[in-house]
Write a protein that binds this DNA or RNA. Structure first.
Lengths: 226, 226
DNA sequence: GGGTCGCTTCGGCGGCCGCCGAAGCGACCG
DNA sequence: CGGTCGCTTCGGCGGCCGCCGAAGCGACCC
């Protein structure tokens, strides 16, 4: 019986249109049904049906606002599940030509649901390790120094149920970057403080103000330019 | 393009027969194609086709031995992915009547791929936390005392790429138990040392010899009997 | 070497599901 | 209070895919 549940959940993501929707929703924003239809290249009516199914499966939430209907990922755990699955999917040969163009545009800095990824994301992981802010001795952990430095930068260290730090294989870099509650808080702080700014879909622009705080995290942005 | 990859991977698990196969394979053993066919309730020919597809997708490995053909999960990361998906699947209402009977049989102690789960698995997490062997201060980590105690028990602390400790929502207990490289090493030691013995599919029998080592891990087995 | 056994491959059937356009339905705009 | 706009629902079409039994193919047994 329980086994059927697994198949049902997988079936929801097994359709290319629904998969596309989930992936674009990983940018953390709320999309209208019409936008999702366009992104997936299908009729509005079909998109609406897909959204219904994603809602029923608990993957996304639909919030009506006036005559529009906004769709967003239901909760961070779902985002992590989709990322996990996408990681496995990208774990093999690949890749087309067109995608490499898109990847170029997104490669330097981008968001992965609610945290930084791309070249900058990977450098952040390396830098924080090198500075001793995080440790991999027994799983990924934040060190005492890490607590201090983040405090000085105005990044609150979350203490909820969600894992503080997780490795997340980067789609473009093929190396791990940091995911979890802490990187999410870091991105939020970075946007608030004007260190970075969201550009397009998932692209992120790194602003000059980022230089100092990122240096404190072990990242030399000047040496990193593409 | 990349989006299609996600859908393809999900599609592999979206079939009830293949999902069943993957779930039974979570016991870590190698199954023959015939056994899998019986478990899924389908013809041998169909099962063979499913196995081929699971192999192509990188979920399982097929190793020929004489005229038999053994199938097992391809690697621990795959097992974690399937568990992750199954967790999401079981995250809702549920449950039939028949399944509760099966659950009863498996509830006390069972394996979850390569580590202990069930009531004992949950108690292990609680006990190790209470004894200060693991900590949740910044993600799940093994403490210094944890290293010591495990050393005394003859459990080697792995240092590979795989995460040492992870929370894993228990299907039967609806609470977390410990997964990851360390719980896997613990189970292996427990079997070798005769603390526990594998019974049926995923059921585990806890032997008298388990009392002392489990007490060291903060678990009072006598108080735990079902 | 003939017989059996376990698995794989092949052909063909049947059902499910994703697709669209048309129609229905609120919400907002004048 | 008609008109438009965004979304949802409905009916029907078409293709894909999981299913089986039959046939093919090695490996083992005697």
């Amino acid at each position: 019986m329980e086994t059927i549940a697994l198949a049902e959940v997988a079936a929801v993501l097994a359709d290319p249109s629904r998969a596309t929707m989930c992936l674009v929703l990983l940018d953390g924003r709320a999309w209208t049904v019409g936008e999702l239809a366009k992104a997936a290249g299908i009729a509005l009516s079909t998109a609406s049906e897909h959204v219904t199914r994603l809602v029923d499966a608990g993957f996304v939430a639909r919030v009506k606002q006036g005559r529009a209907s906004y769709v967003r990922i239901a909760d961070p755990r779902v985002a992590e599940l989709i990322e996990h699955l996408a990681q496995h999917a990208e774990h093999r040969p690949v890749t087309g030509l067109k995608s490499s163009v898109r990847v170029r545009r997104l490669g330097f800095a981008r968001t992965c649901y609610d945290h930084l990824a791309g070249l900058v994301g990977v450098a952040l992981r390396d830098g924080m390790l090198a500075e001793g802010l995080v440790s991999t001795d027994a799983g990924l952990t934040l060190t005492g120094r890490g607590h201090e430095v983040l405090g000085e930068l105005g990044v609150p260290v979350p203490d909820g149920r969600r894992a503080l730090l997780r490795d997340c294989l980067d789609w473009t870099e093929r190396r791990d970057h940091l995911a979890g509650a802490l990187p999410a808080a870091l991105l939020e702080r970075a946007v608030d403080a004007g260190w970075v700014a969201a550009e397009g879909n998932r692209a992120v622009k790194v602003l000059p103000a980022a230089e100092k705080p990122f240096a404190a995290l072990g990242v030399d942005l000047a040496a990193l330019q593409p």
